[in-house]
């Protein structure tokens, strides 16, 4: 029997519902009174699974299946309505890689800005900075405010930061479509490197080919429910069949 690694991500009966209010007045009312005439939209429906340290897991699902909501819960920016999510370690999420920057700060300052928010010390960041800057290929643009960046440049910087801050868990959300062909290839190489270093890896994609490349296990999500959990080949086959 192989040695079992520690569980780093644990979902237990997680349900997330969004309240859809007719208008702002209803929403305002809900702050002070427990009114319940909001319509509910269930985004995640009673989801349970464990992910162990060092696993590479693909998350497959159509648009609107609840993948993003699930990832947001893992990275701690939104919370379940019912159930519990437990995550251990530093999460580096490539959810919309271009997000979470302060547009007024330069690229270099944003490296520190984001790093420190993730709880990385300044000294550690100083050490990482050259790698991040070099990887991003931004050249002298690194000292310009982010608001002057093109979306491609933002994505490059985002990926560079998240891939170089030595996270315990890395989440990639379609981020391999970042930048031009050369940069994509570089990202792939970097991800493979990260994977070999024993980092837990979550990969959200529509492309089963890409998923098979990186991952050993696959979760298929449909309408907020976990419909398949197992070997990536079977998961990919299941997902392909779902489309027909």
């Amino acid at each position: 029997m192989t040695e079992e690694h520690e569980v780093v991500i644990q979902f237990r009966n997680v349900t997330k519902t969004f309240d859809l209010f007719k208008n702002d007045k209803q929403r305002l009312k809900s702050l002070l009174f427990r009114n319940t005439n909001a319509r509910k939209k269930v985004a995640i429906d009673n989801l349970s699974f464990d992910i162990r340290q060092g696993e590479a897991v693909a998350i497959l699902g159509k648009n609107g299946a609840g993948k993003s909501t699930m990832l947001k819960m893992i990275s701690g920016v939104t919370f379940p309505t019912v159930g519990s999510v437990r995550v251990t370690g530093r999460v580096s999420a490539l959810l919309e890689v271009s997000g979470g920057f302060d547009p007024e700060l330069s690229g270099r300052e944003n490296i520190y800005f984001r790093g420190e928010l993730l709880g990385i010390s300044r000294d550690e960041l100083k050490e990482m900075e050259p790698d991040i800057v070099a990887f991003s290929e931004l050249g002298s643009y690194i000292d310009m405010p982010i608001r002057t960046y093109s979306s491609g440049m933002k994505s490059k910087l985002g990926f560079s930061i998240n891939a170089n801050i030595r996270p315990d868990i890395i989440i990639v959300d379609e981020a391999l479509s970042v930048g031009d062909k050369d940069f994509r290839a570089k990202c792939r190489r970097r991800i493979t490197e990260i994977l070999n270093s024993g980092v837990t890896f979550l990969f959200v994609t529509h492309s089963t080919a890409e998923a098979k490349n990186f991952c050993k296990r696959g979760l298929v999500i449909r309408e907020g429910k976990l419909v398949f959990d197992g070997d990536i080949k079977d998961a990919a086959a299941f997902y392909e069949k779902m489309h027909v």
Binding site: V91, G100, F101, R114, L118
Partner: peptide
């Protein structure tokens, strides 16, 4: 908002 929506804070 740009912050709390993207990074755990």
């Amino acid at each position: 908002a740009f912050l709390v929506k993207k990074i755990k804070f």
